Amino acid sequence: MKNASGGWQQVDATLRTTADGAVAPTAVPSQLGFSGGGTGPMATMTTTDGKKLTLKAPFPLPKPALNGDSALYPSVLPGVDLELTATPAGGWRQVLIVHTAEAATSAAVRKLQFPIEADGLTVSADVAGNLKAVDAQGSARFTAPTPVMWGLAPGRPPTPADRGRRAPSPCSPHQPRKSLWRPRPRRAPTAPAKAPP
């Protein structure tokens, strides 16, 4: 990918703390930022032409523990952790890790919503729960598939294989909830083909 100075560099989703205390991947095609803790935005994606999509958490976030491309916010609710993971494409995955049966059945978890703010974009959902943020021309700039849930054996942490597995709702003990936001690349218009003379 090209960096700000116009040179080429390797894509690297490893998270780091920025000068202003936020968290961002080292080098990804779309500008992405995570919360460094507090009551500000949980995650923000910005396109090259300034369109912005922001998700907020309905609770203050603690300072995260960074591990590669993931940021873990512990105990955001009783018995619940929040994990945000940057993707190489510049999007992110969010996972709620629910540790106990009590937490899984709590009203705070079952009714949890993350408010969305869109600058220059309109966000909509289809009947299946897939989300799309489009610009004024109707072009999709960000998308997110339907959130999924899955269960784990008590005491076993989630693995990468678990994160691709669907499970029925409602939440069961040790059941994370996952959603994924990703930027949509813009295609340059192509010139119409001309017939040979």
Rank of each mutant, 00 (worst) to 15 (best):
Q10Y: 00
V11P: 05
L15W: 00
T17L: 01
T17H: 01
T18L: 03
D20N: 10
G21L: 02
A24N: 03
A24C: 02
T26P: 01
P29Y: 05
S30Y: 02
F34V: 05
F34A: 07
G38C: 09
T39P: 01
G40I: 06
M42W: 10
A43K: 02
M45P: 03
M45E: 11
M45N: 02
T46S: 12
T47K: 02
T47I: 06
L53M: 10
L53A: 08
L53R: 02
T54A: 12
P58T: 13
P62I: 10
K63C: 01
A65N: 11
N67I: 01
Y73R: 07
S75T: 13
V76Y: 06
L77H: 08
L82W: 07
E83C: 00
L84S: 09
A86S: 13
A86H: 02
A89D: 15
G91W: 05
R93M: 14
R93T: 15
Q94S: 13
H99T: 11
T100M: 07
V109Q: 06
V109L: 14
K111I: 07
F114K: 09
D119S: 10
D119F: 00
L121E: 10
V123R: 07
D126N: 15
D126P: 07
D126Y: 04
V127G: 06
N130T: 11
V134K: 08
D135S: 04
G138Y: 03
A140T: 15
A140H: 01
T143I: 05
P145R: 02
P147G: 02
V148N: 02
W150Y: 14
L152H: 09
L152K: 02
A153E: 14
P154A: 06
R156I: 11
P157C: 04
P160Q: 05
G164T: 12
R165V: 14
R166W: 07
A167R: 03
C171W: 03
Q175G: 15
L180T: 15
R184P: 01
R186V: 15
P189S: 11
T190H: 09
T190S: 14
P192C: 09
P192E: 13
A193C: 09
K194I: 12
A195S: 14
P196Q: 11
